[in-house]
Amino acid sequence: MAVFSWFNEVFLKMTWLNNFMGGIVENVFQLDSTSRIGASLQFFLYDTLKIFFLLSVLIFGISYIQSYFPPERTKKILGRYKGINASILSALLGTVTPFCSCSSIPLFIGFTGAGLPLGTTFSFLISSPLVDLASVILLASIFNWSIALAYVLVGLVLAVLGGGVIGRAGMENQVESFVYGASSIDVEEVKLSPKDRYNYSVEQVKEVIQKVWLYVLLGVGIGALIHNWIPQELITALLGQDKWYSVPLATLIGAPIYADIFGTLPIAEALLAKGVGLGTVLAFMMSVTVLSLPSLIMLKKVIKPRLMSLFVGIVVIGIFIIGFGFNEFSSVFI
């Protein structure tokens, strides 16, 4: 355990980097690191470096794993299972299958065209953006492991139950009819050498960094603002743990925001430090990642309004329950 906590401190929390940045702020910028400006600068430097470092290492490792689970293969595996087992497996595979909103349409058509039940497909669509392996490790870095594991668990449960409800709702007629005409051909698997997988992982790191660097900077910037400039009273008045409306409010604020989960983490970190409830913070993050407008707009091309409302409704209710639950039992985790 000692080795484990040493690893946690050094590589995940990087307390040494924080101290080092404190030194830079004091000696290079000649600012008091306990002053507002000094502390903001220290938070910004430390968090930016930490997130980019973790991001690069994590994306590399995770892409390597993901190269074994392209959606084409996931589809084939899922076709062999039925009912709740299919939903559970679908939610699990969602965490290791690479997913971006630009391929959600081909994926939806591919899954449905191959005869996978709607419930299975939606379990995947909920779990894939929500429980991303990289985000889990970052969660552990920013909060702690029990929070990260609890997040994974409730995320998977939401995916399985959400898919289950949608599967039983008899909404097959709510899918645009052309989707069912899709061919269900399985692509011949392309053999990848270790070198191919390595190249793929390096490309993914570059691509993800290119895609998210701005969100991360913005997120850390906002985090630094919350940390040192926005009065605690204002934040607790709006999002404080004792306010019943904090969870719905956080979900509502999160939904239209299109950001990567990596951009939301520094904001979440700062909010938590300001006394916002853990459940409220998690509700915000889940809402940003699953209910992002661009992917909903994409999805609208293949499903009709009633199914769309059911999907959004289930996710929102699920996030509320998770949020309230974590707020109620946060003492277990922090």
């Binding site: 392209p70 391929s103 065209g113 399985d186």
Partner: peptide, 9 residues
């Protein structure tokens, strides 16, 4: 695209 069995573009 799907008719080739491809989902990840």
């Amino acid at each position: 695209i799907i008719s080739f069995g491809v989902m990840s573009t």
